[in-house]
Structure formats: C-alpha cells, structure tokens
Amino acid sequence: MIRYLFGRVAFGALILLTLSMFVFFLFFVAPGDPARMVAGDKATETQLIQIRTNLGLDRPIHEQYLSFLGKAVTGDLGFSYRNQQPVAKLIFNRLPATLSLVVGGVLVWLAVGIPIGIMSARHPGGVRDRLGQGFILIGLSFPTFVLGMMSLYLFYFLPRQSGFMLFPAGGFKPFLPNPAIWAWHLVLPWTTLALTTAAVYARLTRGQMLEVMGEDYIRTARAKGLSERKVVWKHGMRATLTPLATQLGADIALLLGGAIVIEQVYGLQGVGALAVQAVANQDRPIIIGVVLLGGLFIVVANIIVDIAYVLLDPRVR
C-alpha cells in the first residue's frame, strides 16, 4: 500500500514536471516580446534591455526554466507582466471563488446524479425510470454555456422583472461571515456546472446498478433474508459506486473546463476568469501559473481517487 502510494505520488510529480516544461517552452517560443508588454508601447530600447535583464530573459532558455522551476516549488511563480503583482498572490486571491464553485459543483453533481441513476435502475421501464431518463437526456443535450444563460434568464431575470430576487445573477461572496449568502450566490453556478455531469453520472450509475442487481451475490443477499432496502442500498450500492470512483478522477479535468465557462457567465472573479484575462493580455507568468495549478489539482484529485479505489475494492489491495 505504501509502495503503491509512493508510486502514485512519484508519477504525479513526473506529470507536473513534464507539464511545467511543456508550458514554459511553449510560451518561450510564442511570438511577442514580454519586455514590451511589461514596459508598455512608449518604452525606449534601453528600458527594454533593462527589463529583459531584470526578468532574466537574456539568459539561455534552460537556465530560465531551471530558475523558474526552483522558485515554483517554493510557491514563487514570478510577477505578472501587466501589474507587477506576484502571480502566486493573484491566483491565491482568486482561489476561494473557484474552489467554492468546483467543490460545491462536485457535491451537487454526485448528490443529483447518483440518486437519479439508482432510482431509475430500481424500476426499469417504470415511471421513475422514464423521469430519470428524461433528466439524463436533457442534461446531456445542453452545453454548459446554454444552460447557464437559460438558468440566468429563468431564475434571475424573470423573477427580477416581477420584482423579487429569487437568486442573484452571480458575483462571489466569501464564505464568512455569512455562509447562507455565500451559498445563495452559488446556487445557480453550482447547478449549471453540475447538471451535465450529473446526467452523465446518472446514466453511469443506472447502467452499473442494473448490472450489479443481476449479479449472483445480490441473489445471495436476498436469499439471506435481508430487507430489499438493505439489498439495494448496502450490497447493490457498494458494488455500483466503486467503479464510479475511478471515473470521478477522470472527470475532474472536465469540471475545470466547465468552471472557466461558468465563471464567465456568472461574473465570478475566480481563477478561470483570471486565466481568461491573462490570455487576452498575453500575461505569460499568470497563464503558466494557472496551468500548473490546474495540473496540480488534477494530479492530486487522481491520487485521492486512486487511494479511495484501493480502500473501496479489497481485490486490488
């Protein structure tokens, strides 16, 4: 187990290293002069040279990379070309909004998707199954962006016109001092973010559950005289959820992509919005920082999922 864990962590580190190299060199070869971005259009040639030296842009590329890497592992991601603020701090300030969005989104997605899938699978072909299937179809057929616009219109704009505020149009409020306000502002972003993936998970859960309920050990559980509730929620669930846990790891990346869109739609000042601005401004240190952070998030999430899988499935222990 320890060895396995160690292997996973080492592999994750390797992935991050490769990623950092990739983005770093990608942006190095990209056209555009960073010094000019820092200094603005009116800078003189001497000023530019000065800035290049300050940024270390005159050194060979591998040296630049190594110094970047050395600082990055201590949490120093350099300075924004635009406003000279430390990248780490810029990102850190944006983290609460994005984390709130993503973590809440995952919870909503699981809390909606899995029960709907189970409900569907419990009575295949019945009314509840058809409702569930309807949900799956709707969730799968709308892109996140369209869903966001629609829910803004339905749950913000329309109520607003009749003079009352059902949900705010967006904007992020910190968790403290009032978590209720925080959550109220995030309800629409959460549901929008989670709906599509919830549909995917409902479908996965339904299929998995149907298969599991046909297994011999489910028959054994019934033959033992367990109540149907226990058969489904203990024996059935256990075997249904384990494979889903692995799927979860793979879908985290999808979620981050979704988060960028949602932050735009609802005007949340999160990391995604920061990244979008940085791309528009060609502010390379910020882009590199955000990409690395995203990579770190995915790697860590996958390690957690791997550990969960080992804990859940005794056969791979």
Binding site: D216, Y217, R219, T220, A239, T242, P314
Partner: peptide, 15 residues
C-alpha cells in the same frame, strides 16, 4: 440456500 457458483455468489467487497 447454497448456490452453484461460489465464485460469484459471495459479495466481492465484504469479508
């Protein structure tokens, strides 16, 4: 009840 296939008749995730 004792079932035919002891491989698949016991739940794989419980002791």
């Amino acid at each position: 009840m004792i079932f035919q296939d002891p491989m698949s008749s016991l739940h794989p995730y419980y002791t």
